[in-house]
Design a protein around this nucleic acid. Structure first.
Lengths: 216, 216
DNA sequence: CGAAAATTTGACATGACTCAACTGGAGTGG
DNA sequence: CCACTCCAGTTGAGTCATGTCAAATTTTCG
């Protein structure tokens, strides 16, 4: 199992000529380091043995409604989105997951129950994935990862709290401007209807907001 | 109906009026235990030395906009609310904090910056508070608390994600019914206008929803 | 280049908001 | 014990932001 896994990773390295094998772990390690989590050689080896590298094409799904989320994914390149489909068939974007972010359905992942969300790729996307079993081993063998994810979830909680506040108390225009200011890099890479969906408005409404902004 | 509710509150009030010092830590320890965090005698002593017990009256503030959040609070009894005031002076409830929950403004707490939120008590409320300095010491001396808060924030993140999904994709009526189902114990203790604010609608709209429900 | 998708625009509908008035219960003081 | 006030909740009428549906236009991508 482990052997074939390594082999597969190796094969993917070569298949993906854009990707530098030596640098594959840099982004994750940097992300850890930014939260003051520094791994020694042994810990790094454990991490490397328990994560799996995967590539997804644009429009390919990482997770589909009804399936159980088997992995959490750290995005190395590209951008994914998590969305929900309502009873009228409309999509509602909950998150964008560009490089250096984690994506997945935590609830499904932890509880082993079918997810209500879909996650697909808005660009060709590369990720490092960890399964629940492996993550449990990781927490066991590298306890400092508890601190890492504690900080990660703390920040996610703060961000989401702010987002709920924005939806509750600010008009669509204000939310759009906040979005532009907060995620300028994402805004340029994704379709307006995705942004509209994230903001909780229709593409038509967003178009009108943009028109108003252009006037000024 | 109203009478029995008042009576119940009264009963609870008297039952807890003379707080039992020996039992003060039970709720927190139980909360830890539910997440498989068990403290030995030494660790318990450390925790007890770094938390502070405080009582607040109904309508009293734990935190006011513009101040820096110096503590995170674990609610032992009563119920608090976190709300934001928009530029028109309207209040928007982000969270209710009944017993067994944590409340505070994490962002202000961690970054040492003035908060945009207010936290006040909807009932007489008792809490255990920890300051940032003490929490840092705690993480240092009782590393397993990283795991505790990691799990806590994980769950908070899941709950908030669900809430954003609900706001984006479901009508007011549906959100209200979800709220009733999810927090039946809270619903009976707080004013409708607080619930309306939490749901992101006006008290008038909520009143109309309730009328519709009653018809059926 | 050409088909499909995304965006924009217009006309109209609607759910939720605002403002204002009314109801009823809780608390207060004469 | 009643009159009075206060406040949450309810109800009604009119308004407004945003949604819906449909069509025109632009952009994307095979």
């Amino acid at each position: 199992m482990k052997a074939s896994l390594s082999y597969q990773c190796l094969r993917i390295y070569f298949a993906n000529y854009h990707y530098n094998p030596d640098g594959m772990w840099d982004l994750l390690l940097q992300n850890l380091a930014e939260r003051n989590i520094l791994l020694d050689t042994e810990e790094l080896a454990i991490v490397q043995s328990l994560f799996t590298y995967r590539k997804f094409k644009r429009n390919q799904y990482l997770l589909q409604e009804g399936d159980v989320a088997r992995h959490e994914s750290f995005v190395l390149r590209g951008i994914a989105r998590t969305y929900e489909v309502d009873e009228k068939g409309k999509e509602h974007v909950l998150f964008f997951g560009p490089e250096d972010w984690w994506i997945g359905d935590l609830y499904s992942f932890l509880s082993n129950t079918p997810t209500r969300y879909n996650i697909d790729c808005l660009e060709d996307t590369e990720v490092l994935q960890v399964s629940k079993e492996n993550l449990d081993v990781l927490y066991e063998k590298v306890p400092k990862l508890n601190k890492y994810f504690r900080i990660l979830f703390q920040n996610a909680f703060i961000t989401l709290t702010h987002r709920v506040g924005a939806i509750l108390s600010r008009a669509a225009m204000e939310r759009y401007q906040e979005f532009l200011q907060k995620y300028p890099h994402i805004e340029q890479r994704i379709a307006n209807r995705q942004i509209a969906s994230f903001l909780g408005i229709t593409p038509q409404s967003l178009s009108r907001l943009r028109k108003q902004l252009a006037k000024k």
